[in-house]
Design a protein around this nucleic acid. Structure first.
Length: 585
RNA sequence: GCGCCCGUAGCUCAGCUGGAUAGAGCGCAGGCCUCCGGAGCCUGAGGUCACAGGUUCGAAUCCUGUCGGGCGCGCCA
């Protein structure tokens, strides 16, 4: 409808230009919006206001000219000029009914479009280090990324979902020795747990599994392990201690056994992460290994490429990327003095790899604490010859957990965080997924566990799902009363839907496709949650105000068509959020 | 100190890229089941859009500054 009115306005402008009423040179984007107030009709445009200055006419006068030049159209019942020069369109009510037939005809496809232009989009999200289970902080990125991916697919993009597995860095070595120390302790060796190690219970569980499967194959005397190590915190430096311990583990265990402990830890944790995400409704097309990237020589390649472009230089024994020449605040090290590539270097290689795989757009979803990282990665894109717009970084702010009024402490260090699994078990997948995307991503969020789990009216998830279940319930009642739903008869009698509640619902339903389009274009799934809440609210109001299962066949079928359209739309919207639409609750 | 995000009703938040009288939910005060599911509905009170300037027909929205909150500024990942 918007497009239709925009086309009419374009025609009017053409006509005015030909008539010489307005200069033909000026171009103003024609934008039609839904009127907020029904007194202002159904749609409105500020075209005359926007054009007044370049056209050299006062806005109201210009509006009159535009209205006169507007070609007649059966759908447009009335056009008014209001306020400073808005042009308001009143749509023929009969045209509003069309949405119901459309929804029933399109079913699950209703709301899908091609507005994304078939772009190939790569979206990387979560990508938490496989050094421990996912916690609630990762949940928001997961819910957001998955919903954005679904939205992009709904508007016709080809979407590739990917998890970047950081299995190559020092953190993984720290995990490895953490497991090993726990294992040695379990074997009866008396040695202290490193201050900088991973303390979570999952480490113990992995150590136990290691012992079950391999007995004492990795056991060494504590004295040998500890001999000559520098002091650990608090007296000593915990970083130096753990590095020495890693070195010691490598030497004593040898490459193969060290690798075995490493791999056991990685597999266990990654397996957990996959399981968690799966249960959270999140699926990936690819789990991309950083180690694989390094082993394939891709990091070297990427650095060579930067070097060929003249972007690298040596200083103080390290290799630097001259990112400040492209606007970063300072240059960045890519190869350390000790010859090891930095995390940044493999990240550059990873993004180069993505670019070479032929995606039109790369979307990275990161925690907001990584925001300082955005400019340098953008400069790397440019140095590699890619337009920086091909990389879009979406930052997701932290969620602070509450139980009622009380803030839930979160400390990864001490291992006393709430895992995503605990959250899911406590509030359920549906509530968690919905809650996480209810707020704008860049908005700090308070996540109240008590609220999410409460089966009450304060809980928007149930409110929306309940609307869906209620429609299903009406259809069950229909059968019990011995009636049958005649869809065609209902479609012919849609004009009987004249109540205010029905008109409001029709208007809301008509807005669904554009809501999906906007949410996708802006990467804002929260727009969809707000829409669904509104639609459900209008339905509940309607439900209370009118009986659907009336004696009059034609009216009953018309109403059933309307509420079936509501049900379908809610189901479609929820599915984009990976939230279920239950038939009963 | 510098950079990024944020500041809208008692609380949690929307506000459709600058439009018309700033909206929801919760909470609070009242009301609605002989009726398709009360996990629902209706009515009401509640605002200096942090503050001060600026841009223009028009600002919660854009620009500058101030104040307040969060996060980040490693040869960590």
């Amino acid at each position: 409808m918007k497009e239709h009115l925009q086309a009419l306005l374009e025609q009017a402008l053409e006509r005015l230009k030909i008539q010489g009423e307005i200069p033909s040179a000026i171009t103003v984007p024609v934008r039609v919006e839904r009127a907020r107030d029904s007194a202002h009709g159904d749609f409105a445009t500020n075209l005359a206001l926007a054009m007044a200055k370049p056209a050299g006419h006062p806005p109201r006068k210009l509006a009159e000219k535009i209205v006169q030049a507007l070609p007649p159209d059966p759908v447009v019942r009335k056009v008014e000029i209001a306020g400073p020069g808005f042009i308001n369109f009143f749509i023929d009510p009969l045209a509003q009914f069309e949405i119901v037939s459309r929804i029933l005809a399109e079913g699950e496809r209703f709301g899908r479009s091609r507005s994304g232009g078939g772009r190939k989009v790569h979206i990387e999200f979560v990508s938490a280090n496989p050094t421990g289970p996912l916690h609630v902080g990762h949940g928001r990125g997961a819910a957001y990324g998955a919903s954005v991916a679904n939205l992009l697919e709904a508007v016709g993009c080809t979407v590739h979902r990917e998890y970047y597995v950081n299995d190559a860095g020092r953190q993984m070595d720290i995990l490895t020795v953490s497991i090993w120390v726990r294992y040695l302790q379990n074997c009866g060796e008396a040695l202290p747990f490193p201050a900088n190690g991973y303390r979570g219970e999952y480490v113990l569980a992995i150590a136990e599994a290691l012992q079950r499967e391999h007995g004492e194959a990795f056991r060494l005397p504590a004295a040998e392990v500890l001999r000559g190590l520098p002091p650990d915190a608090p007296e000593g430096d915990k970083e130096a201690y753990i590095d020495a311990l890693i070195e010691r583990a490598r030497n004593l265990l040898g490459g193969d056994r060290y690798e075995k402990v490493f791999q056991t830890g990685l597999d266990a944790i990654l397996g957990d992460i996959r399981e968690d995400l799966e249960a959270f409704g999140v699926r990936y097309d690819l789990w991309f290994s950083e180690r694989g990237l390094v082993r394939a020589g891709r990091v070297r390649e990427a650095l060579d490429r930067l070097g060929d472009g003249g972007w690298l230089y040596q200083r103080e024994g390290a290799t630097w990327f001259a990112s400040s020449r492209l606007g970063d605040e300072k240059d960045r090290v890519v190869v350390r003095e000790n010859g090891q590539a930095t995390y940044f270097a493999s990240d550059i290689a990873y993004h180069l790899d993505k670019l070479e795989r032929g995606f039109d757009l790369l979307i990275d979803v990161w925690g907001a604490d990584h925001h300082g990282y955005v400019p340098r990665l953008k400069t790397a894109m440019r140095a590699l010859g890619a337009e920086p717009e091909r990389l879009e970084v979406r930052l997701v702010q932290f969620a602070v957990l509450y139980r009622g009024k009380e803030r839930v402490p979160m400390s990864t260090r001490a291992g006393e965080f709430v895992t995503l699994r605990q959250l899911r078990e406590e509030v359920g997948k549906d509530a968690a997924r919905f809650f996480y995307v209810m707020r704008k991503a860049e908005q700090h969020m308070d996540f109240d566990l008590e609220l999410a789990v409460s089966q009450s009216n304060d809980n928007p998830v149930y409110y929306v799902q309940y609307a869906h279940a209620r429609v299903c319930s009406v259809f069950r009642q229909l059968g019990e009363k011995g009636w049958r739903h005649d869809v065609d008869r209902g479609l012919k009698c849609l004009h009987k839907l004249t109540e205010n509640h029905e008109q409001a619902l029709l208007g809301c339903l008509a807005r669904y496709p554009e809501t999906v389009e906007r949410a996708a274009a802006m990467r804002e799934p929260h727009q969809l949650t707000h829409y669904l809440r509104e639609l459900a609210g209008l339905f509940h109001t309607y439900y209370n105000a009118h009986t659907f299962l009336v004696e009059e066949d034609a009216l009953r079928d018309a109403r059933l068509n309307l509420i079936e359209a509501v049900r379908q739309t809610i189901a479609n919207g929820l599915s984009l959020l990976d939230v279920t639409a239950p038939e009963s609750m």
